[in-house]
């Protein structure tokens, strides 16, 4: 780890000032990716601004047809939330299966979405649910944010809240990489008034993406039966030592089917 400065502001405006004052400063929102990278000297920062002491950033509440989750809410808090469970039970399941207990008690939903690891779980849910990402400056539609790897926030922007429109049905099914327990392939399926979305994570080098052929099939009939015949194109999918593109393409079909099963259970 290279030496760095560390501040832990108690208000959002303090954090904004610190961020503006130090070029290259990074926000710490749980640190489950950033801290290991720093420890391995793969990353070097002049200043870490720890957002964990800012009050109000871990609020979970229902606002009409929206579920609002503060950006600094930990995975464990989401997994244990009765509000989330009542609104979008599939998110409870998703959060409860991220990493291990240590990760879930430190990692946050905002950290996961901002970092947007191509095998992370939350980005799949955010895109499938057409979430809005609220920052200190604007609201960004997940559709825009997840159009490419690490696209999104400006240097001085701080993610504060995620707004999930409550769908009719939602489920996330993950086939974990046996080593890292990140998604080898994970599929989020949401059925809402606006239509059906199927989003895959872990399978593309540029992060999460929608799977139109599965969306079309499920829009016609929201049932697992029709999915088996659909062959997912593997040509743009990730191949690595844990699975080739063909295997990942196959798993997209299987995990989507299982997510649909869970939606209907």
């Amino acid at each position: 780890m290279y030496a760095f400065e560390y501040v832990r502001p108690s208000t959002l405006s303090e954090a904004e000032r610190a961020l503006a004052a130090q070029p290259g400063a990074k926000l710490l929102a749980g640190g489950q990716s950033l801290i290991p990278a720093l420890k391995l000297r793969l990353n070097r920062v002049p200043l870490l601004i720890d957002l964990s002491a800012i009050t109000g950033l871990n609020r979970i509440e229902r606002r009409g047809n929206l579920l609002a989750i503060g950006a600094m809410t930990t995975h464990a808090e989401v997994a244990a939330s009765s509000v989330v469970k009542a609104a979008i039970p599939g998110l409870v399941h998703l959060a409860g299966n991220i990493g291990d207990p240590q990760v879930r008690n430190a990692g946050t939903i905002g950290g996961s979405l901002a970092n947007n690891d191509p095998a992370a779980d939350y980005p799949a849910a955010a895109l499938a649910l057409a979430a809005m990402l609220k920052t200190n400056r604007q609201e960004i539609a997940a559709d825009n944010h997840f159009s490419g790897l690490f696209a999104g926030f400006a240097e001085d922007e701080i993610l504060t809240e995620i707004l999930f429109p409550i769908p009719r049905r939602f489920a996330y099914s993950k086939f974990p990489n046996p080593a890292s327990r990140f998604a080898l392939v994970g599929c989020a399926v949401a059925q809402a008034a606006t239509g059906v979305r199927v989003v895959a994570t872990g399978a593309g080098a540029n992060g999460v993406f929608r799977v139109p052929e599965l969306e079309t099939a499920l829009s016609a009939s929201f049932s697992p039966d029709g999915l088996k015949r659909i062959v997912i194109d593997s040509s743009n999918l990730t191949s690595d030592i844990h699975g080739d593109a063909e295997y990942r393409a196959h798993l997209i079909g299987v995990m989507t089917k299982r997510a649909v099963d869970a939606c209907l259970a």
Binding site: P178, A179, S180, F182, I241, H242
Partner: peptide
């Protein structure tokens, strides 16, 4: 679970618990 992979240049690809499965 435990797979050790070297690439053709002799780099150990499974050099952390992200890739080496205990």
């Amino acid at each position: 679970l435990e797979r050790t992979v070297y690439d053709d240049t002799g780099q150990l690809l499974t050099a952390s618990y992200m890739d080496y499965c205990m």
